[in-house]
């Protein structure tokens, strides 16, 4: 654990510190606690999705359908709210998580039982999910005035100085840190992606493990779907369009290896925060927000180059050993 922190996550933490330091040199207001809370809150949806995506990538898969899942689940809970405004929020939350998990399971079952490459499955379900939103609504929006106040209030309610949205992200970080490091399923994700062949020998069903990864990713996407539509108080077909790539970017920047088996919850958190800080800092430092896309692209490329350097396995180093011996 210490070693992992030292190599990947610590490096990223230092980079984030430097980034904040640079911004604060000219714009000290950016590192005011209230502003940092804003930044964290704004990044919370990305953190939730990045955790789910990290788990999927750990198992050598990828989930390109997260943003579409988010949009579909968001629309479904909005429509439920529209039809039954009195329904308690706990039910809405349960529906969001459950429905998202169901969509994730659909991905997972295709990957597990039919062994279809995950990129193909989720490329397909991504377009299907968005299409289904259109079928449900005929392309119409669910607007703020159609949502009940309780429905919209949840992510904004402030508890102990932090909005609930942020608290949910924090809870997810803690919960999944424990799941990934202290449960058999968590370790199975690492094993199934790091060495699928060996995992089978250790009694781990690789396909089923991937299925659970997709289910978790789906559940988190569903939860984020409700939080997203209630926070912005609007639901429509193109909610979070293209966001799946930002999520993958957060993971890559967070040191998650696309080849599977390498990654951590703190890494995903830091990767998401890095992108979140940039997105929030641009308007502050007077750079057009149009720079954001290019910057995150550049960050992905730099991160993947650095990750590759860090993970390069050294050769046998026969001569060195010989020198030591003599």
């Amino acid at each position: 654990m210490k070693r992992i922190l030292a190599s990947r996550e610590l490096l990223l933490l230092v980079a984030i510190g430097l980034l904040l330091g640079l911004i604060s040199l000219r714009f000290p207001a950016f590192i005011a606690p209230s502003k940092l809370v804003d930044v964290f809150n704004d990044t919370s949806p990305l953190i939730l999705l990045a955790i789910g995506q990290m788990i999927v990538i750990l198992t050598k898969c990828i989930d390109l359908s997260v943003a579409a899942n988010l949009a579909l689940t968001g629309m479904v809970v909005s429509l439920i709210n529209l039809a039954a405004p009195g329904l308690p929020i706990t039910v809405i939350l349960a529906v969001a998580i459950g429905f998202g998990a169901l969509l994730g399971m659909f991905n997972g079952i295709l990957v597990w039982k039919l062994a279809i490459p995950p990129i193909v499955v989720t490329l397909g379900t991504m377009t299907i999910f968005r299409g289904v939103i259109f079928l449900l609504t005929d392309g119409k929006w669910v607007n703020s005035h159609e949502m009940s106040d309780a429905f919209k209030a949840v992510p904004r309610t402030v508890i102990a100085g932090l909005p609930v949205l942020s608290w949910i992200a924090i809870a997810a970080v803690i919960l999944f840190t424990v799941v990934m490091t202290r449960t058999s399923l968590g370790r199975a994700f690492y094993a199934a992606g790091g060495n699928p062949h060996a995992a089978t020998y250790a009694g781990i069903n690789v396909g089923r493990t991937q299925f659970w990864a997709f289910t978790i990713s789906g559940a988190l996407a569903g939860l984020t779907g409700y939080l997203w539509v209630s926070r912005f108080a609007v639901a429509y077909v193109d909610v979070a369009g293209g966001f799946e790539l930002t999520v993958v970017a957060a993971c890559v920047i967070g040191g998650v290896s696309i080849m599977g088996g390498i990654g951590s919850v703190p890494g995903a958190l830091l990767g998401a925060l890095f992108l979140g800080i940039i997105a929030n800092a641009l308007p502050v430092v007077n750079i057009s927000p149009f720079w954001q896309m290019a910057i995150s692209g550049g960050a992905i490329i730099i991160a993947v180059v650095l990750n590759a350097q860090a993970n390069r396995t050294p050769g046998r180093i026969i001569l060195k050993r010989a020198e030591h011996a003599t």
Binding site: L245, V252, W291, M293, A294, G297, I301, V304
Partner: peptide
């Protein structure tokens, strides 16, 4: 990455 970079 380059997809974000080029379009960016």
């Amino acid at each position: 990455g380059t997809m974000s970079l080029f379009r960016g």
